[in-house]
Amino acid sequence: MPVEPPITSPRTLADAYAQLAEGPVTPIAGGTDLMVSLTGELGEPPERMLDLWHLDELRGIALDGDSLVLGALTTYTDLRRSSLCREHVPALVEAAATIGAAQIQNRGTIGGNAVNASPAGDTLPVLLALDATLVCGSVRGERDVPATAFWPGYRRTALAPDELLVRIRFPLVAGRASRFRKVGTRRAQSISKVVMALAYCAGTDGGLWTDVRLALGSVAPTPIRASATEAVLEGRPPIPAIAELAAETLAAELHPIDDVRSTAEYRRVVSARVLHRLIREAGGW
């Protein structure tokens, strides 16, 4: 029995900020997560909604100095079609291609994925691995939040009640490689069992990896960085002994849970194996 809460559609960001400042209202962008809550079965449905879809200020993919900047309303389809994204954040493009199916990709946005804050959100580990900065705005102005601080707890974000996520900024890093893998329940319309993003710079001196970032989803209450494993890989080459140590470290570092989609053991083992595979592929052995 769906409910139909009242909804307003501001045409300017300033108007949206003003409405957010006035009181509790739930912003809605593509709606691919929120529409499900309108059944009222998964907790209380929102009382009032704020439609962001017409805010073109929140659209666009552009280079800005040493950053790639994506508007929060950038859809997965936009990401997949963007040559800038393919060049600078290929792992994000790969992630976008695994989300839902065509209809979801046309509506779902990167900002919505971040704000929904699901531990299984497929782009979130990519934001972590690529050192993204999330720009939050309100009547009080804008502030930057690093991805590592954006998801403080289960399904929570660093946004204040009157704030919107407006942009996501990725630093451009020369020579950075990024990889993405999703292990889901099926080949489309699938919620992740494990999602992994890996980024590193492969130096010319013997192929040593530096600036290693390893992030995972669906293995903890929030998307996480696997810092112990990053430390194992940092400054080392992608050789079998290092891969083995990294896989073992990751398996020890993760504490996933059993849930309706998979088991803790599967998530732990598969995370290690997927990492091992990515290192193996990079090392070419």
Binding site: R186, R187, A188, I191
Partner: peptide
Amino acid sequence: YLNDRLATYVIPTALD
């Protein structure tokens, strides 16, 4: 039944 929703009871899609 724990997975009594379409998000959790999955059947093959066209891609499967």
